[in-house]
């Protein structure tokens, strides 16, 4: 789908919620960089609203939300709702990384999350998914 010029894919890796573990976020950020993507990292403890504003201001193609536990219940839906309200949802590929129970995964996908990557997913797989599904743009 990514048919445009030499424009790199821009990504925001976001940490929402209270946990201070960002190893997973850093691993995926480096993998994306090595794949030639441009990566902006949100820093820790960001609110859904901050994430939405960052995704819009940075004009990213991909928003990867890294969560440790529990946070997906409310925070991820809030982010998606915010993107929709701003008219940015259609242009943004939203991914979730972390531990998400299967029934919740289905719910997140219904909301508009493109894919959920559990811990231990090979980074190649995530990179390939992004390449294949990133929204077309000029």
């Amino acid at each position: 789908m990514h048919t445009t010029t030499d424009r790199p894919i821009r990504c925001l890796i976001a940490k929402v919620g209270l946990d201070g573990h960002d190893r997973g976020a850093h691993v995926i950020a480096r993998a994306f960089r090595d794949a030639g993507f441009e990566v902006v990292y949100s820093g820790l403890h960001r609110s859904p609203e901050e994430i939405v504003r960052a995704a819009i201001q940075e004009d990213v193609d991909v928003l990867g939300i890294s969560i440790l536990s529990g946070a997906h219940d409310t925070l991820v839906p809030d982010v998606i709702e915010g993107l929709r309200e701003a008219g940015a949802f259609a242009d943004t590929l939203v991914l979730v990384g972390g531990i998400v129970p299967p029934e919740d995964e289905r719910r997140l996908k219904d909301l508009g999350v493109a894919e959920v990557f559990g811990p231990g997913t090979p980074t190649d797989e995530t990179v390939a998914f992004v390449r294949e599904h990133v929204r077309e743009r000029v």
């Binding site: 790199p8 950020a29 480096r30 994306f32 960089r33 090595d34 794949a35 030639g36 993507f37 441009e38 990566v39 902006v40 990292y41 949100s42 820093g43 609110s47 609203e49 901050e50 504003r53 960052a54 940075e58």
Partner: peptide
């Protein structure tokens, strides 16, 4: 690689 990690975004203290 052409890719880049652009550091932590600065905080936006005031939501919205």
């Amino acid at each position: 690689s052409g890719g880049a990690v652009l550091g932590d975004r600065i905080r936006m203290h005031r939501d919205g």
